[in-house]
């Protein structure tokens, strides 16, 4: 296994990154939990939706008229929830308002958040990588969504929990993708199984599975190359990687995670559908929630496909990976 300690050069880079992260945190008024960090990040945007919705709600003395509903609807669309999901949520909200007579606009907003949280609660499920046995996972997704980084963060987290992690570098296509993952492997203290650039990704996955079994590792994480879901041949390749891993391990993968960038618009739904058709997705990792994007597309995905959301990425540092929390998520949509 690669040592826990990075080499000298690596180390100074890491230190600087820590310092940067630290500074950033201070600026953001870090107060524990990703929600407060999200808020802090959001607070910086003047053009943010927050003030607009707030304005709409308070400007009319809290009374509920059609414009309040429109404001909430706009907020949902602006969060990328999509027209269809937005319409059906608003429909439910109107019905509920008829039954429960909200006291004012604020109360209505609270109900909306509850509706969204209720919609998301069934899909907020924890990672299924717990002991006993070898827990294997792979990440899939379009280019640049954050797969490699998420694998790195996850390896880091699991190693810190005392699990022995092996990483498979099955992105053999993108230039320097292997090196990128190796840096993460060193950070996490996890061994990285890699072949040459351009090698067959399924062969890498096979070897990684082999190594995980042979070394009695606790967790196997396999990174894959980014691909657009419209590329049939690349989706076929993904199937093969999954098939080879599964058959080598003699059991299904515990997690097949779609890594989705929170800035993604309506195409995210198509991505989820198409990747789910190629490999048996078990959940989503929603990355880059540290920006101003709300990641509302997971609402659309949850309501149409019921695909669980497992983790959220909130930065580029090793510790910036959190479990998905529906209430905080719903709250952040309107903050």
């Amino acid at each position: 296994m690669t040592g826990l300690r990075p080499d000298a050069g690596e180390w100074s880079h890491l230190m600087r990154e820590r310092a940067l992260t630290f500074e950033r945190r201070q600026n953001m008024g870090e107060g524990g939990g990703w929600f407060s960090r999200l808020r802090a990040g959001l607070a910086k945007t003047r053009a943010g939706l927050a003030s607009r919705v707030e304005g709409l709600l308070s400007g009319r003395g809290g009374r509920i008229d059609e414009s309040v509903y429109e404001g909430l609807e706009e907020a949902l669309v602006l969060a990328d929830a999509g027209v269809t999901a937005t319409m059906s949520i608003m429909e439910r909200l109107r019905e509920r308002a008829k039954r429960e007579a909200p006291k004012g606009a604020e109360d209505l907003k609270r109900m909306l958040k509850e509706e969204i949280a209720a919609l998301l609660r069934p899909v907020a499920r924890p990672l299924a990588l717990d002991p006993p046995g070898l827990a294997a996972a792979m990440v899939v997704g379009v280019n640049g969504s954050g797969k490699t980084t998420s694998v790195g963060k996850l390896a880091w987290r699991l190693q810190r929990e005392g699990r022995q992690v092996i990483i498979g570098a099955a992105d053999t296509f993108r230039a320097a993708a292997i090196e990128q993952l190796q840096v993460w492997g060193r950070r996490a203290g996890a061994a990285v199984i890699a072949h040459e650039p351009g090698a067959d990704p399924a062969a890498v996955a096979f070897d990684a599975a082999q190594a995980a079994v042979a070394r009695g590792a606790d967790v196997l994480l396999v990174d894959t190359a980014g691909r657009l879901h419209t590329r049939t041949n690349l989706m076929e390749e993904l199937r093969k990687v999954h098939r080879v891993m599964t058959s080598r391990l003699g059991q299904p993968l515990r997690e097949v995670l779609l890594v989705l960038d929170a800035t993604t618009g309506q195409n995210g739904l198509v991505q989820a559908r198409q990747f789910a058709e190629a490999v048996p997705l078990t959940g989503i990792v929603l990355t880059k929630l540290d920006g101003t994007a709300k990641g509302g597309i997971v609402i659309a995905i949850a309501s149409e496909l019921g695909l669980p959301v497992k983790l959220v990425g909130v930065g580029e540092g090793a510790e910036d990976l959190q479990d998905f929390a529906p209430e905080a998520f719903a709250e952040a949509l309107f903050s």
Binding site: D80, D261, Q266, G291
Partner: peptide
């Protein structure tokens, strides 16, 4: 990214 959603305007601005 061509897949970017509603946030694109904030980013660009």
């Amino acid at each position: 990214d061509a897949m970017t959603g509603q946030e694109a305007v904030n980013v660009a601005q």
